[in-house]
Amino acid sequence: MSIDTEDQAALRASVRDLLSKHSDSAAVRAAITTEIGYDAALWSKLCEQIGVAALAIPEEFDGVGAGLGEVHVVQEELGRTLTPSPMLGSAILAAQALLLSGDDDACSRLLPGVASGESTLALCWAGAAGWSTFGVEATEDALIGTASYVLDGHIADTLLVLTADGFYEVDPAAEGVSRRRVPTMDPTRTLAEVTFSGVRGRPLEWSEDLVDRIRTVVLIALSAEQVGAAAAIVEQTVEYTKSRKQFGRAIGSFQALKHRMADMYTLVETARSMTYAAVATQSADDAAVAKVYCSEALQQITSEAVQLHGGIAITWEHDAQLYFKRAHGSAQLFGQPSTYLPSLAQAAGL
């Protein structure tokens, strides 16, 4: 089911067509072995031919000025193919952090390059314990500490550092900055640790609610990606059960398996509804609900997919294990689902 507008449907078709030609399973597997963790040529095509990085950037900063609905479409399609790219980390998380800060000067300097796909940003935010803490501290003179789980932090052209007391721009080549790509459970997602040892950052505009506003946007974008991955692995599982035979019959004809796949499909459509509701309201609570539901739905769906495929699903050659790893990796991103439940319960008066 889709509730795309005419323009969104055209955008979806364009992205899906391009990814079908340049981001099949073999291409994804080749991309994750590169030093940068994604296919730079494909990213250039997505930016130049479709303008994906420019979607949520206002026209005054050389963007398209579209909304989260269009971002949702692109994220779904990237999730379907598990395509590694700087979309979530640079074009959404970091770019939106800069926009939400209200610092027009920084936006004018940095966002045109992001919109064109020529440069990337990375938001340094979380501490080792996760996104409820800050990894870097701002003293009177400098930035000190280590930001963990930084999306594309090892290759970004500019670092944006979010602390408890301010927001800063840092040149990754500055003295005192060190960064390294870290191993991840999900090989299609690159994360880095970025350490600041007495580094002077350029102060940016900042407000106390900036973290909550950033979190709302990125949770919506992440949930859209999860929906795309869930829909794709359900489709692949259905196709597999049509061809795999046991006792002289396709296993997809067995009533018990039909029921399990119907439940998987229901989870996908419910998750999609959750994300569209969050897009419509752009409220923190709806974004958190989408994060929790879509994370748990994708984990359940990929677990079912592995069981329905059988032993082949856990081999490196099969894509089911990549979707399984994406499910569990993305569930941890920006906080485990369980971390959002107390505030949601409080908001519901429970």
Rank of each mutant, 00 (worst) to 15 (best):
D17M: 05
S20Y: 03
E205T: 06
L322P: 09
R244H: 13
V15G: 05
T216S: 06
V306N: 09
A97M: 05
G228E: 04
E205A: 13
Q226D: 12
V218A: 02
Y340N: 08
R180P: 08
S132G: 11
C47P: 12
E225A: 11
S303D: 15
V268T: 08
L68R: 14
A347N: 07
V15I: 06
I312K: 15
S44I: 00
A129L: 06
G349F: 00
I214T: 03
S197D: 15
Q282L: 15
A173M: 13
P84L: 02
A66K: 13
S273C: 14
G69E: 01
W316I: 09
R244T: 07
T81M: 11
A284V: 02
A41F: 05
A27H: 11
E317H: 13
S243K: 15
A156Q: 01
R180F: 09
V73K: 15
A284L: 08
G166C: 12
S197Y: 08
V73L: 10
D212I: 02
I32E: 14
L11W: 00
T281V: 07
V292R: 07
T81D: 07
D209M: 03
A320H: 05
K21F: 00
A54G: 13
P86N: 01
S101W: 08
F196H: 09
H309M: 12
Y265S: 13
V52L: 10
A174F: 11
S223C: 12
T237K: 07
I32P: 06
A27G: 04
P84W: 00
K45F: 04
T270L: 14
Y323V: 00
S14H: 06
Q255V: 12
L121S: 10
Q299D: 13
I155K: 00
L308R: 09
L160S: 09
D141K: 14
P86C: 01
A290V: 08
T146V: 11
V71Q: 13
Q332C: 05
T266D: 15
E60N: 14
L78D: 01
G201F: 09
D209G: 03
V289M: 13
V73A: 12
F324Y: 09
G252E: 02
A138S: 15
E70Q: 14
V218H: 00
K242T: 08
S338C: 07
V234Y: 05
Y340I: 02
E205I: 02
G127H: 01
L350M: 07
V150M: 01
S101G: 05
T237Q: 03
S101K: 04
T83I: 07
A27P: 07
S20C: 04
D171M: 06
A277M: 14
S14K: 12
F61N: 08
A313T: 02
E175C: 06
S25L: 11
A277L: 15
T120P: 05
Q307K: 15
G117Q: 01
C47E: 05
G311I: 06
I312D: 11
G248C: 05
S273K: 15
G252C: 06
R179C: 14
M185C: 06
P342A: 04
K21M: 02
M87V: 05
G329D: 06
G166T: 02
R109F: 09
A128N: 04
L99I: 05
L93D: 06
F196I: 12
D104T: 13
V114E: 09
E193F: 03
D209N: 08
S44L: 03
A284D: 09
A250D: 07
